[in-house]
């Protein structure tokens, strides 16, 4: 078992006051709260901080911990064993909470009979109580193509599980989920009864999956609608043309009318994400031209300039 230095975890000195401990904990809890932090290991950090605080904020537990820190046997590899016959004076019970889980180290010191598992039958939590299991929330990232076609995903997450004596363990649950075609950004999918199991015969919670769409190199999604910038040359826009453009469902032909303007939108009905009704795809015109022109092209442009000299593109600017 690894020895946990609770002082180091909270970044405080061994002689820190209760006020220092509280302050350090509050600051770190804000930083690593899994609902706030984007750091990869936020959840495990948050648990460690909580565990360290749980011990150090309580003068009795802290005294016991300090004693153990001095007396506990340390192996060469840094592994830790409590002294033989160690028993905590604290009868520590934690109210059942789906997402808190203390380390083996903590359980060995403060857990009941040194058990690596924990009871929640104290203080009003009796076997007769019937409670619905917690809902579990996860985000899943999809590529736009996957959202368009639907896809299958394998998810793994931890669920608390209580045996018939009320002992809590966590186990890894694996689900193969079929994501239907046409899901959109931030949309939720419910998997009934796949959350945390209920207590005392209560129903299981649900699993909610929130869809997160990865940015796409070409397309941009808003709800079920898909947006795509279409570069055309000035002469294509002036003369009109038929061009081939990509959609999520494959290439399609789009007719650009003569005299089309930059920024103009063309709607391809029903070519967005599927559904009832399906979304549309919008093609947004962008004008582009070669960076360099040949001498011949330049002289053609000069002719064009003379031909359309009456047109003032900056009329609205008052110049």
């Amino acid at each position: 078992m690894e020895f946990k230095d609770y002082y180091k975890i909270l970044g405080i000195k061994d002689n820190a006051t209760t006020e220092d401990i509280k302050k350090a904990y509050r600051k770190l809890a804000r930083k690593y709260h899994p609902d706030v932090s984007k750091e990869d290991n936020a959840e495990s950090q948050f648990k460690e901080i909580g565990e360290a605080y749980e011990v150090l904020k309580d003068p009795e537990k802290r005294a016991e911990y300090d004693q153990l820190k001095q007396l506990g046997a340390r192996g060469r590899d840094g592994s830790f064993q409590p002294p033989p016959g160690w028993q905590s004076a604290n009868h520590f019970h934690e109210a059942f909470s789906g997402d808190s889980q203390f380390s083996d180290f903590f359980e060995a010191i403060f857990g009941q009979h040194g058990s690596a598992r924990r009871h929640y039958s104290s203080q009003g939590f009796q076997q007769t109580i019937k409670m619905r299991g917690d809902d579990i929330h996860h985000r899943i990232a999809l590529f736009l193509e996957e959202a368009y076609q639907g896809c299958q995903r394998t998810l793994q997450f931890q669920v608390p599980e209580a045996d018939n004596q009320g002992l809590i363990t966590h186990r890894t649950k694996t689900l193969n989920v079929k994501i239907p075609a046409g899901v959109t950004q931030n949309q939720h999918i419910r998997l009934k009864g796949q959350g945390a199991p209920g207590i005392g015969g209560g129903p299981s919670g649900d699993l909610f999956l929130e869809i997160e769409l990865a940015p796409h190199p070409l397309f941009h999604a808003e709800g079920k609608d898909i947006f795509l910038n279409i570069p055309v040359t000035p002469w294509e826009a002036a003369l009109g043309c038929a061009i081939t453009i990509p959609t999520l469902g494959g290439k399609v032909s789009l007719k650009i009318p003569a005299g089309a303007q930059a920024g103009q939108r063309f709607r391809l009905k029903g070519r967005g994400l599927p559904g009832t009704p399906p979304g549309d795809q919008y093609a947004i015109l962008q004008l582009t031209q070669p960076a360099h022109h040949s001498d011949k092209a330049k002289s053609l442009y000069q002719q064009l300039a003379q031909e359309t000299s009456h047109f003032n593109p900056r009329q609205k600017l008052g110049v």
């Binding site: 394998t154 363990t169 966590h170 186990r171 890894t172 649950k173 694996t174 689900l175 193969n176 989920v177 079929k178 994501i179 239907p180 899901v183 949309q187 939720h188 999918i189 419910r190 998997l191 009934k192 796949q194």
Partner: peptide
């Protein structure tokens, strides 16, 4: 740590933001 459980396959999901 935890006993091995086989994966569960779910093909009946509900899109619920409608």
């Amino acid at each position: 740590m935890s006993p091995h459980h086989p994966p569960i396959t779910i093909s009946d999901v509900e899109v619920i933001d409608a």
